[in-house]
Design a protein around this nucleic acid. Structure first.
Lengths: 223, 223, 223, 223
DNA sequence: GATGAATGAGCGTTCATTCAT
DNA sequence: AATGAATGAACGCTCATTCAT
């Protein structure tokens, strides 16, 4: 599985980087170091200087790979959604029932923690970054420009895949994308709230109910 | 209505500011100038230097009122939720039916644009800021510290008020806060997606369906 | 004794202050607060803002009394030397032998710690300030200007008084002032070195030998 | 001689700088520019901004070499003492008589002006800086921290060298370090007093007597 | 006389970025 | 291709100081 995942990276839009970070040892260190550092200090405090120190290289070298820290975040989130799409494909292959496929998709979206590593990428930390920081990848003034260059392609495709399952179940449903993006972003936020602003949730520390809550929402929406 | 709104500001936690911006002409200019500037250039580009130029004052003067730009954002969002809570109270007073009250609450949350002014505060722009930037007020490493000092009190209270209505309708419902916060944050995101990442929505430019979508979600959840 | 000391303050040159700090309650708080604060954080970190907070007043109020933090230091050191001069007079009055008077003077200069209070002024802390910071009162580019306005009068007078005793003992001695100022500044420095840079001293923590060392220097110089 | 001096710089503790100023042209300009500027406006008025303008570079570049202006002062004084130690070694080599060696050492310490240049460093100005500002390098709250990191090593070693000569002459003398540091600091102060506060000296403008005064002190102390 | 409000100026620092090697 | 050196620009912050009350 991991071997295939690595090949996924190749598909990330070239506009996300100056030089493919998968193409060299240093590039890979930039990616793993970024995940480590953003996870530790947050995207706001993250800078190329700190990254250069972390990976024992220089700022100039990082610039060879990424034009800005924004692009790094876009790269990481795109990588995440690429990998999620693969996992979805893997989980739904050869399953005929769209209901079952949707169920597995929701399971995937709302699963509490990821405990895998791929190509030295700590996926648990990447998941956490997506939860805490991924919105900052599109809540920016340059969103339209980035979008035009395909920066959010992977995310939109992931949402699309599940929307398609929904339309299989209920072809005349009007809001398949809204339903999926609501569940995806909601699941991230609820997990974050559960940890930091529990008054906005009803998890009582048990994050399993996030899955139950969104499962129910989706099922009732399609009834 | 506006007179009462102004008195609402007094209730914002003192931890949000160094000196109450409502207490002086300069303080008010800082607030209105911040709204104007954040709306124009985005919170990421917003700095006290630019704000000082905008309002024809100095950074040092701004620091008298706010410790950091983060606190300004917290102040603005708290002000927004305070004002939303008041509007909610106003809209639901003397309405017996909890269903009707909930309906109006959802209407309030999902209404497309706000076209009012209060005390020189351009509420349309503030609404836009809440949509585009408010998540950056809590998706920060200092979230727990800020929360401990009451920075998110107004937001949590607004969510609570509506959760209470939900519990009136369906007392044994397990996820009232999650439902409300999902709708609130979802409504913001869908509006943003509708404008910038339409593939993640099904609005086709018509933002009315955001209301329809979340109405249906809530109604079905409480059936 | 203390009553008389308070009257000494009156003699401090008016050029040291804008308004006599002894003339009001606030003025006295500024003096005692400055001693407290400089002792705690050092003269370099000392600012009128911090002082104003310490004494629960405002910067503008402090400016009524002192033109700058430099002047505060000059005031405190002048006050110190004024008080030392008084103590010297007190200790040598009615003593005929100039040798005995000199002995007592050296004792006074080299005594390890001062454990008295006068008019709420913590003299131990003031002594420490003189040791650690008083050189910064004259090692400045404005030294000549300050000197012209009498800022160092008290210090010079104290040195003079002892020089006079020396000349009584050995009228043809060529370097009475150099001897005294060497002992005074040396005693301060050695005390400081003893606490922070012991390799520059031979005190082994016991500061009594500072007295022995300088006593011997002086006695041999006058032989 | 100068060639050897340049190699001395290498021995300055790395904790004094971020990047060795001897290692590049810019680094050397920072050192010479600092001497020029501190000499002109004093250490208190000296800032990295003014230095950057002086040497036609930028603050950011200066920061590559020195963490703070304090460190620059520590660097300059350490350089000075390193160079003084070398001169001492040079002056006393092959001299058997410790009395003669001591005599030369005192000559070195109390000599009126230095009129040499080494590696574009104006040693006369550096000497003046040491006289006027070097105490500010250790009369700081961070003295213990700096000392722990070896900031005063060169000074202490210079004092030590001469203390050793003293002990050769009078092995049971109790205060060799105190005697040396008193003479060193005293010589600086008396020179300063002679120029700015003559009432504290007996030089009448002729600074030669500083040497005579301290010579006598030392000779009598060791009798 | 004392204070609260406001400001001009400048400092220390960091960042993003470029250039030469 | 990767790095080391250097820089322009701006940020966050604090200080000393003034003015109006």
């Amino acid at each position: 599985m991991l071997d295939i995942l690595q090949s996924l990276n190749i598909h990330l839009t070239e506009s996300l980087y100056q030089k493919d970070p998968q193409s060299s040892k240093l590039g890979k260190k930039i990616v793993t170091g970024s995940i480590e550092l953003i996870h530790n200090i947050g995207f706001d405090q993250f800078t190329f200087r700190k990254l250069a120190i972390e990976i024992e290289s220089t700022e100039a070298s990082v610039y060879r790979y990424f034009e800005s820290k924004q692009k790094v975040l876009l790269y990481l989130t795109s990588w995440y959604w690429s990998w999620m799409e693969y996992r979805l494909a893997f989980l739904t292959i050869n399953i005929n029932s769209p209901e079952e496929r949707l169920k597995r998709a929701i399971q995937l979206i709302t699963e509490p923690t990821i405990d895998e590593n791929s190509d030295n990428v700590d996926l648990g930390k990447l998941h956490q970054i997506v939860i805490e920081e991924s919105m900052k990848a599109y809540l920016i003034k340059e969103v339209d420009h980035e979008n035009k260059h395909g920066a959010y392609f992977q995310y939109k495709q992931f949402v699309n895949r599940i929307s398609d399952i929904i339309l299989e179940i209920k072809p005349n449903y009007n809001y398949p994308h809204m339903l999926v993006s609501t569940v995806v972003e909601g699941a991230h936020l609820q997990r974050y709230f559960s940890q930091h602003l529990p008054n906005l949730t009803d998890t009582n520390g048990s994050e399993n109910c996030i899955h139950d809550f969104y499962s129910e929402i989706v099922l009732k929406a399609l009834k």
